[in-house]
């Protein structure tokens, strides 16, 4: 995943196709994050103006959803499932090991729908079943 650095023009281009959509704020935030890797402050005001909603509304949506981030993406994004089905096959132990190795690049997630082949880890968007430290290492940049 490569992200562009912030530019008003690029942001406006990303938002333009959403003008026709009903209820566009969440989609707009997602589109901004796809483009820039996170939602910069400037984008909040731009979304508010573009779709004629208050900045508070945009901020409210931005801070509600776990996926949305307000700081630049790290080099690797490692999400480990710590929901019940993966817990049952040792995801808590793997979680500790991953956090010891990759620190803040690791975050908890709840279910990737791979519950019969856990533990499940998603590394930079790629889902790994029956995950181990070694399998994760292969996908790290």
């Amino acid at each position: 995943m490569t992200h562009s650095s912030w530019s008003l023009g690029a942001a406006m281009a990303v938002l333009e196709p959403l003008r026709a959509e009903p209820g566009p704020v969440l989609m707009a935030l997602q589109a901004i994050q796809r483009e820039f890797g996170f939602v910069p402050d400037e984008a909040v005001a731009l979304i508010a103006t573009t779709f004629n909603v208050s900045r508070a509304d945009v901020h409210g949506v931005l801070t509600f959803y776990h996926d949305l981030r307000t700081t630049p993406a790290l080099e690797n994004e490692i999400k480990i499932c710590v929901a019940e089905a993966c817990q049952a096959v040792g995801s808590r132990v793997l979680e500790k090991a991953l956090k010891a190795t990759y620190k803040e690049e690791v975050c908890d997630a709840f279910c990737f729908g791979n519950c019969a082949l856990g533990p499940a880890v998603m590394v930079n968007g790629k889902l790994i079943g029956r995950a181990t430290l070694a399998k994760v290492a292969e996908e790290i940049k």
């Binding site: 009903p22 209820g23 969440l26 707009a28 509304d57 409210g60 949506v61 509600f64």
Partner: peptide, 8 residues
Amino acid sequence: SIEGKRGV
């Protein structure tokens, strides 16, 4: 959420 709001 489909309406683009907080999922309340």
